[in-house]
Amino acid sequence: MKPAMSEPVRKRRVWIGFIVLFVLINPWYFASDAGSTLVMGIPLWALIILGASLLLSIFITWTIRTQWQTDSDELYGCGKESGDGSNDHRDATRRDEEA
């Protein structure tokens, strides 16, 4: 059975968002003397870049929360019990793989 998966890499909106934000975190769209405009001692262009970077972080949060879902946690629960030292699953899958 093929599991229902949602991966960021397959979502057009994720790509569009990342491309737009990547363009915005490169400071190509300022005048070369933009450094003369200061806000509290910080150049305005730098604040805009930081703002765009924060938007990227927020977009990453949104992407992780809503666009990323696989069946791993359903299939395997939330991690093996620590310390049991077993590695059976690994060998089992590998054997299946060989077969």
């Binding site: 990323w68 696989t70 791993s72 395997y76 690994r90 899958t93």
Partner: peptide, 18 residues
């Protein structure tokens, strides 16, 4: 950002194939 292009699938595969 770059993690998001491969980590979701790689984690799932890591779990399946240990």
């Amino acid at each position: 950002m770059v993690y998001l292009f491969f980590a979701p699938r790689l984690y799932a595969l890591g779990r399946r194939f240990s």
